[in-house]
Amino acid sequence: MKLSTYIKQKPLLFIGLLSISIVVLFFVSLQTGTAALSPLTAIQTLFGNGTEKDSLILFEFRLPRIVIAILVGAGLAVSGAILQAITKNEIAEPGIIGINAGAGLAVVLFIFFVKDIPFGFSSTYLLPVTALVGALTAAIAIYLFAWKDGISPVRLVLVGIAVNSGINALLIIFQLRMDPKDFDQAITWLSGSIWGADWTYVLAVLPWVILLIPLAILKASSLDILHNGDDIASGLGIHVERERGIFLLIAVGLAGASVSVAGNIAFLGLVSPHLVRRIIGPKHQMLIPASALMGALLLIVADMIGKNLMAPSEIPVGIVISALGAPYFIYLLIKTD
């Protein structure tokens, strides 16, 4: 109890702890997998002194996958934190702006209609692009439907519900008509998995994350104000609509990029900001970076477990996130106000 009060007063300490945990897990995760590397070999290889085989495993398979887990986890968590603030709804998550449903439908349609493209090629390059297009299309549709002299938080949530329901309906129709083989491919994607273990994917997500997260941190104080109500915000001289629009774009960009390489990872975007808020409080200046780190940490751990628990078959990381994150979240719900 004493420790938690102490951490509450020192959010930077908490951020430091999260960062250290990520670094430690980064190295643990480098060593674990189907072909185990000893800690020493892993570090030697990382600095360029390993055998050719070890370098291949490390640089072509493990490293990109861990980097993607960090980027995607951070992206989804910050997207969730922003959306919870601008919709003023505690249970908002990247899903409500149609990102997951849109990306899911695009991927399912792609698998359903395009059968003859070789599996490896389609899943490496075309699926993520398809998913990103689907995610952005859905987000734009929701934005347009919700626009009426500005975007009110309530209308954004309601329109999000409507569009999501519609897209999910189509998703169900196509899913049930699929061949079992196609269905398996689709369900793996829909459950969320970091199959994009490839440097191309890292390059595809990296710019979004390293540009948009610092931008969100920079503008964190107006996020506090937006969260506290439009009237107060206008009173304080904030351009409510413009700010909300910018934040919505940031959230869409982060979630869209994340979903396009890692599939539909549910719960992470909802739970990371909540975990952090219950530990260090609601100020976004600290909440955003801490959420980013929390999301990254959760996803590295979940990916490590999903990859190794039932090796050589993998458990979709989305399932691991829920199975891990939910009990901890329930514990925090019971313990804190």
Binding site: E90, I91, I187, S191, A266, F267, L270, V271, H274, I315, P316, G318, I319, V320, I321, S322, A323, G325, A326, P327, F329, I330, L333
Partner: peptide, 20 residues
């Protein structure tokens, strides 16, 4: 609402895990 979401996510993940 939050407890509902958390318990739901937990049960759903276990159900999907078992089913897959």
């Amino acid at each position: 609402a939050l407890a509902g979401i958390a318990v739901g996510a937990l049960l759903r993940s276990l159900a999907s895990g078992i089913a897959i």
